[in-house]
């Protein structure tokens, strides 16, 4: 998993966020601690900590003193909103770019998408 070219702590944050989106970590439950993440992923605890802190700053996680990090109530909606916004830029734009290179028409592209959806 550590092959992405972005800084490691962002990858850690993404991994947790994905866990929240697919309900591995439901709202109001604990996520792995810094040390658990570090040990599990064989990464520096400071890096793991930064990944979690990033999510706290975004309001996705909340810190409970002495207990650990918990998924904030409403975190899932927050992530869904966030990701929907960047969805177009991250996925649709490159797809259209690739389709243009192939010379696909608008109709052909839409047909291809609909075929995948069904």
């Amino acid at each position: 998993m550590i092959d992405d070219s972005r800084p490691l702590f962002m990858q850690i944050a993404d991994r947790i966020a994905e866990g929240i989106l697919d309900d591995t970590y439901p709202e109001d439950t604990a996520v792995p601690s810094t040390n658990e993440l570090a040990k599990h992923l064989r990464i520096n605890p400071a890096t793991a900590g930064k990944g979690l802190t990033l999510l706290v700053e975004q309001g996705v996680l909340v810190k409970r003193r002495g207990i650990g990090m918990f998924v904030a109530v409403g975190a899932r909606d927050l992530l869904v909103r966030d990701r929907s916004e960047s969805f177009a830029a991250e996925f649709i734009a490159p797809m259209i770019h690739a389709a243009k290179q192939l010379g696909l028409s608008r109709e052909e592209l839409i047909t291809a998408i609909e075929k995948e959806l069904s």
């Binding site: 040390n35 570090a38 040990k39 064989r42 605890p45």
Partner: peptide, 14 residues
């Protein structure tokens, strides 16, 4: 080597 990384990180975090 994996054992080394695991044990080092475990002891370092504690």
């Amino acid at each position: 080597r994996k054992n080394f990384y695991d044990e080092l990180l475990r002891d370092f975090s504690e």
